[in-house]
Every structure is written in structure tokens, then in C-alpha cells.
Write a protein that binds this DNA or RNA. Structure first.
Length: 572
DNA sequence: TTCGGAATCGAATAGCATATCGGTATGCT
């Protein structure tokens, strides 16, 4: 059982305990324990297995959570969770997820009106019985009905790249508003999270009403949820929420810091301030004793006021950034300009849409110095994967065109070789031995049991010709879960065997994720950020991989394809 | 439930906006 699964159990426990009206501190302990485990850059199972270490040494994990973790690892389940699931009606949890309803209102409705389903809830709102309950009214009943419609639209978090497209569209619209002097996107979008739940825009406006009117005039707006003096929330398209907050210029830094989050990061920031006799809110940093503002115009000021250097948004998750900042050891995060090579792309030989020359020219246009052509191997029949003969033909072609690119671009003879369902590589060793660059990846048998998949990937790492494991977990964001693989074992083997690991920059993959990247960095595994391009435009997804790498705390030195080709070749 | 400081238990994550109902719930980072 991996860290994420254990963390999910604790999160669910916290949620269920909340509905039971448990001690809030007990609930928080489970939530914090879940976060501690989810963000950990090593395996909980390893810590348990190590006689010299104790789980309860981790911050946020005490005796009880340590015991429960061990039970989970040993038995795969937790009796307490099963019991709570029976005790808390499923409908209560569904109700509390309806926008506008929270735990308290949901519990009250469920108790007083004997609601068994969301359909019951809708009927109760429509019949007027909700409005008659103390603390409720006509407007609340209507808000619940609206919320039910929103919930039915399944407003799931969207991928970062989709959020980016929407932010740019709204941004262009807002730029035409004369009342807006400065604006900046904040929230999880600015932090570069792989999915975005809503968009948060911060603005300095000469006329706040005009700015809010302008946002409401955005073509795809479907609803205004709330509008006050400083804040407006609208829905765009089916159900996606966009918030705008207006502040004064001398508050901008504090507001940006607040609005960027994460919540956990903000709580930590404000706690540090509190200890220093200061108070941070979205309007500035204030001395508690006399309410004097001492910072707020820029984020740098805000952090400086509590004795810290500016922290990059991608790191603001309350993982270890405060410790690093205090020690002056924040990583200098990788940027797109650092990238010199792209080591995963396809051509017309398989399922790509462009030729080797076209891909090479496009790579040069993007400032790259080296690329690897890595078409699929024969097992990927749908993509007309290459057998040994066709692959050697392709390599002969590369030999032929290389002189044209002399001094401009190095083109590596590569292959994305499948790791077969039965284990072993899809092409014989003597063929792989001729390649400059071998990616190994799983495309079939993704539902095999953990032991089997892990064994397959470990087998690939042990193959001396394999240079790198591509999209190591196979997940597709919002569409397909990662395959069940013991990533800790895979990483340890990769570290020991000198095998590289890919961060696939395709916005639907972003595989490895941020926590895995941090773990890989800790183990000293070189990461390769690759586009997996199937078209010329496909080379442009590098930016998404860079964001993800930054969230993992990676620097230029942690990423192999930032090296000059000469340096890179030494890794092979 | 965790943590720390004490020796058995008390304190614990910040701070604010908005809507609706008539003092409180929900939501936001």
C-alpha cells in the first residue's frame, strides 16, 4: 500500500468524523496526518520496516496514527473506517458537497426532513418545506436548488493546461477594461498544480464596480454567485468558478500572497507572523500592538517582514519550503530556458504526424540542441510499432540526414520500447544495443497486480540497454488512474542502476507527479523532462513539464536534458 | 489526536468576505 492510499484513508476518516460531530482537533489530526503522509518524499512502508525508525517521529503522526498506518499496511483495511462508513449516511456526504450546503445545514435538513437522497432534497426545496425550517428561507432553498444543478454538472477540477487557456481568454477580456490598473492570476493556477478547481484573479482597479461589471460581461459567464465591495464570484461555462478580488496598490503583494495560497502555506505564514507579534491578512502585514502596516505592496516585502526570502509559488504547499527558506536553502527552480534537449517524440513511422526532418526543424526553431526520435516498438500494433527491421531502416535514415544538422542539432537514434505483459522487452537486446537512447514503457497489461507490474518495470531497469523509464505510472489526469506499481522499489532500483526517469510533459500525463519528483531528487535520480510529441505543436508542452518539475523542487542540475549534449552523453 | 512540557493535562491553524436570516453558515487562499 502506498503513501497516497494511506493518506486517502485518513482523509476519509476525517470527513466521516466531522459528520459525527467529533472533537475538531481530533479531526484535524487525521487531516494533518493525511497531508504529512501524502507529501512525504519516501515510503511509509519503508519507515515501518526499518527497525531504527519510528513513524511517530514524523511531524503530525503520533501513536494512534502510527498504529493505524501499520494496521493498514498489514491488513489492507481499517476496522474503524468500515464502522464509520456504516454509521454516517452516504446522503449526508453527498448533500454537504452541494455548493451552498455545508456540514451543519446538511445535517439539519437530513435530520428534520428525513432526506434519503439528493432527489428527496430537491423535492423538499421545491415543496417549500426547506424554507419553513428555522435558519432557512426561500433564498436558501433556491440556492440549494441551484447548487444541485451545479453538482449535477460534475464540476471536476480541470487540467492545468485547460485552466491556462481559460485564464488567457478571461485575461484578454479583462485587459480591455479601462478601470483595471494591474491584474494577476493567483490560486492553484499560479502555483502550477496539475489540476485547477477554480481561477482567482487579483486586480487593482480605479473603479471596482466597473471592474466587476466587466468580469460579469465576460461572454461565457453563466451565473454570478456573489458580489460584494471587494470580491465577486462568477461561474463560467457549465459550472467553472472564477473569483476576482480588488485591492489597493499598496496591498497588492499581501493580497497576491494570500490569494496564491495554498491554504496550508498561508496558515503557516500567518502563524510565523503571529509569533513575531505581527498579523498578516490580504491587506498587509501589521504590527499587532498598534495596527501599523509594515509591508504589503509586494510579496517580497511580506515574506521579508517575517524574516524569509520570497518563496516561489510552486513550492507553497507547506511541505518543506519554510524550513528551506529559513535555512537559505530554497532551490533555484528550473526554467524553460534551461532545457537543451527533448528525448521523447514520435514520427510518421508510427503514430506521429510529422517526419524526422520536420520534427528536427521544429526542435531547432524552439532552441533545442539535441533530440531523440523514439517511435513505438512493434507491440503497439495500433500505432504500427516498429520491428527490428523497420527500426533499423529508420536509424539508417537518421544516419543519412545527420550531416545536414551537423553543428545545429544532434539527432539520437532512439526507441520507445514496450515492456511486455509477460515481462521482458519488446525488441531483442542486440537491437537495443544499437540504439543511442532507449525509453522503456508500459502500455499493455496496466491492470495487472502490483507485484507483476513492478516486476516488469524492475526487469526493464535491469536491462543494461534501457536508459530511461517513460511515463512511469501511466496515469492520465482525470481519466485513468496510475497503474499499481511499487514506485519506491522502482526508484530505488533506478537510483542503483543509473537509470533515468521521465517527467512526461504531456498535460494529460504529467507523469511523474510532484511528490514522486521530490522523491527522485532525494535519491539522486536524473529526471528527463520530455514532450512525447506526436506533432510539431506537441513540442510546446514542455512548459507544462517545467511547471510540474518546479513543484517537485527540481533545479537545472536535477534535470538531465538541461545539460549540454556532451555532458548528457556521459549519462548514457 | 498530537504535541510539549510536565509528571497529568491543556492547547492546538489565520484571517476575512458574502449571503441570508434576524445571529450564523459557507466559502476563499
Amino acid at each position: 500500500m502506498d503513501n497516497a492510499t494511506i493518506a486517502n484513508v485518513f482523509d476519509e476518516l476525517a470527513e466521516l468524523l466531522e459528520f459525527k460531530g467529533e472533537n475538531p482537533f481530533r479531526i484535524r489530526a487525521y487531516t494533518q496526518g493525511a497531508k504529512a503522509i501524502r507529501d512525504l518524499d519516501e515510503s511509509v512502508a519503508d519507515i515501518v520496516a526499518d527497525p531504527n525508525r519510528k513513524l511517530s517521529d514524523l511531524a503530525g503522526i503520533g501513536k494512534t496514527l502510527a498504529e493505524k498506518t501499520e494496521t493498514l499496511l498489514q491488513t489492507g483495511s481499517l476496522p474503524q473506517l468500515e464502522k464509520l462508513r456504516e454509521e454516517v449516511p452516504e446522503v449526508l456526504i453527498q448533500m454537504a458537497r452541494v455548493p451552498g450546503l455545508g456540514a451543519k445545514k446538511a445535517a439539519k435538513l437530513q435530520k428534520e426532513l428525513d432526506i434519503d437522497s439528493l432527489a428527496d432534497l430537491r423535492a423538499a426545496c421545491e415543496s417549500g418545506s426547506v424554507a419553513k425550517i428555522k435558519g432557512f428561507g426561500e433564498k436558501t432553498a433556491q440556492a440549494i436548488l441551484d447548487g444541485l444543478s451545479i453538482a449535477e454538472q460534475a464540476a471536476e477540477r480541470i487540467r492545468w493546461a485547460e485552466g491556462d487557456a481559460l485564464a488567457q481568454s478571461i485575461g484578454r477580456h479583462m485587459e480591455s477594461c479601462p478601470a483595471i490598473e494591474t491584474m494577476q492570476w493567483a490560486g492553484s493556477y499560479r502555483r502550477g498544480r496539475e489540476t485547477i478547481g477554480d481561477l482567482d484573479l487579483l486586480a487593482v482597479a480605479s473603479d471596482r464596480d466597473a471592474a466587476m461589471d466587466h468580469l460579469e460581461a465576460y461572454g461565457d459567464r453563466s451565473q454570478t454567485i456573489a458580489r460584494g465591495d471587494t470580491k465577486i464570484s462568477i461561474r463560467v461555462g457549465k459550472a467553472f468558478q472564477v473569483d476576482m478580488r480588488c485591492v489597493d496598490a499598496n496591498q497588492f503583494g499581501a493580497a497576491l500572497q494570500y490569494f496564491t495560497g495554498s491554504q496550508a502555506h498561508n496558515v503557516h505564514t500567518r502563524r510565523i507572523a503571529k509569533d513575531k507579534g505581527l498579523k498578516i491578512n490580504e491587506y498587509g502585514v501589521f504590527r499587532v500592538e498598534d495596527e501599523t502596516q509594515i509591508a504589503g505592496a509586494t510579496e517580497e516585502d511580506v515574506y521579508a517582514a517575517i524574516g524569509l526570502p520570497w518563496i516561489a509559488p510552486e513550492l507553497r504547499e507547506d511541505r518543506n519550503e519554510f524550513k528551506l527558506a529559513a535555512a537559505g536553502e530554497l532551490p533555484e527552480l528550473i526554467t524553460q530556458d534551461d532545457i537543451r534537449g527533448d528525448l521523447h517524440m514520435h514520427t510518421t513511422a508510427t503514430d506521429g504526424q510529422n517526419t524526422i526532418r520536420e520534427m528536427a526543424d521544429a526542435a531547432i526553431a524552439r532552441g533545442l540542441k539535441y533530440i531523440a526520435i523514439t517511435d513505438h516498438s512493434k507491440r503497439v500494433t495500433m500505432a504500427m510499432g516498429l520491428d527490428a527491421d523497420r527500426l533499423r531502416d529508420q536509424w539508417a535514415m537518421i544516419d543519412e540526414i545527420r550531416p545536414e544538422y551537423e553543428g545545429k542539432l544532434v539527432i539520437l537514434k532512439g526507441i520507445e520500447c514496450d515492456i511486455l505483459e509477460s515481462g521482458g522487452m519488446d525488441l531483442p537486446d542486440d537491437v537495443l544495443a544499437e540504439a543511442d537512447w532507449v525509453l522503456a514503457s508500459v502500455h499493455y497489461g496496466q491492470r495487472q497486480p502490483r507485484e507483476k507490474i513492478t516486476e516488469r518495470i524492475l526487469g526493464a531497469i535491469e536491462n543494461e540497454h534501457v536508459d530511461c523509464i517513460a511515463h512511469p505510472t501511466g496515469r492520465l489526469i482525470n481519466r485513468r488512474p496510475p497503474y499499481d506499481v511499487d514506485m519506491d522499489a522502482v526508484m530505488k532500483a533506478a537510483a542503483a542502476g543509473g537509470t533515468l526517469m521521465e517527467l512526461n510533459a504531456n498535460p494529460a500525463r504529467l507523469d511523474l507527479n510532484d511528490v514522486h519528483l521530490a522523491a527522485a531528487k532525494k535519491l539522486g535520480i536524473p529526471i528527463v523532462i520530455s514532450t512525447d510529441a506526436h506533432t510539431l505543436d506537441g513540442l510546446d508542452v514542455m512548459q507544462y513539464g517545467i511547471k510540474q518539475a518546479r513543484r517537485g523542487g527540481l533545479t537545472k542540475a536535477d534535470v538531465a536534458n538541461t545539460k549540454t549534449f556532451k555532458q548528457f552523453a556521459k549519462l548514457l
